[in-house]
Simulated scan of single mutants.
Amino acid sequence: MSRRVTSTAAVLITGSVLFAGLGAPALASADPFSLPGISLPDFGSSDFGSAGPVVETPRLASVDNFRDVGGSGRGYATPRGGHVTRGLFYRSNALVPSDQDLAVLTGLGLTAVYDVRTVEEVAAKPDRLPAGPRYQGIPILSGDLGAAVAQLKSPADAVAFMQQMNRSFVDDAATRAGFAQLLTSLADTDGPQIFHCTAGKDRTGWASALLLSIAGVSQDTIFDDYLLTNEYTAASMKVTYDQIAASRGEAVAKIYQPLLGVDRSYLEAGLGRLAEQYGTVDRYLTDGLGLSSATVDRLRSKLLG
């Protein structure tokens, strides 16, 4: 495999795929808990059965995987008839908004932005933020993933690679420390907050799954939310795939295609390892991430309003 393709894939890290240097501006394609079949919900409605319309989180054309962790409408349903609070935690890919989308972000009244990308990722694509929110970098990365990507020989290899990356969210101590710092900051900071990686799908997807689990939403809903990346970023995934195919050929593009989006099996792999090592998400949070019960309770209180 050419050095050029290897270097572009070397920026693939837990939670994002950034293919740079393929002849066009770098494009990112969008970054747990039972295993029944998935049926994506209709997120086009503004009402989810509420008594009146609810203002939806805007879709940002220039930040295509930006969305509310709480879901749509009244928010994701929780046990006992509740809903996850919306307008509190947002998830995203890299924040490089157009002027119009920057104005939308400004209107959210953000207090903090957490960037879990590596120093190299940030340098390649710095955030463009509205005035006001505090910016905090929390790099989350495990191992020499570039070298591993260079060894991929088939789409099946790429799928296995993504599954193993999700297991690293459980296995790798430094990665766990990063997630612990992120969740603690979300718990301890008031007001609306955004967390993001480059593509908003793996690192960001794992953190979102943990938050939704803390809120007590159904396992199917957590998987549905995870898989929405493929809907939100379909256009950018196609552009990235076409760039790779044009630069290195269709065969190489097919090898890398599983890296561009998300698959149910990726999250399942991480959650399976979590169950093996800790038994429950709560034990992973306290024993694996080292969060105090008070921190988890603060997150739950925020998420449930």
Rank of each mutant, 00 (worst) to 15 (best):
V96T: 10
A103P: 08
L105Y: 05
N93F: 01
S92E: 03
L110R: 07
V122N: 08
Q100H: 10
P126G: 08
Y114N: 04
D115V: 09
V113H: 08
T118N: 00
A94C: 10
V116C: 14
K125D: 12
A103V: 14
S98H: 02
P97H: 09
D101Y: 01
L108W: 15
S98V: 01
L108I: 02
E120P: 00
P97W: 10
L102Q: 03
V119C: 08
P97Q: 05
T111V: 07
D99F: 03
A103T: 13
V119T: 15
Q100S: 09
D99N: 11
V119D: 15
E121Y: 02
A94H: 06
E121H: 00
P97V: 09
E120R: 13
L105W: 05
Q100P: 00
V116H: 12
V122P: 05
V122L: 13
R117H: 03
R91S: 02
A112T: 08
R91T: 03
A124T: 02
A103S: 13
T118A: 01
L110A: 09
V113S: 03
L105G: 04
V119M: 12
D99I: 09
L95C: 05
N93H: 04
D101M: 00
S98E: 02
A112Y: 09
G109L: 05
P126L: 13
T111C: 03
V116K: 02
D101W: 02
Y114F: 15
L110C: 13
D115N: 11
E120S: 11
R117G: 02
V116G: 06
P126W: 13
D101F: 00
V104C: 06
A94L: 11
S92M: 05
V96F: 07
E120A: 14
S92F: 05
V122C: 12
L95N: 06
G107S: 11
S92P: 06
G109D: 13
K125C: 08
D115C: 07
D99E: 15
R117N: 01
V122G: 02
V96E: 06
V119Q: 15
V113M: 05
D115L: 10
G109C: 10
R91Q: 07
L95T: 09
L95I: 15
R117K: 04
V119I: 14
L110S: 05
R91I: 05
G109R: 06
A94M: 07
A124N: 04
T106L: 01
E120Y: 11
D99H: 08
E120L: 13
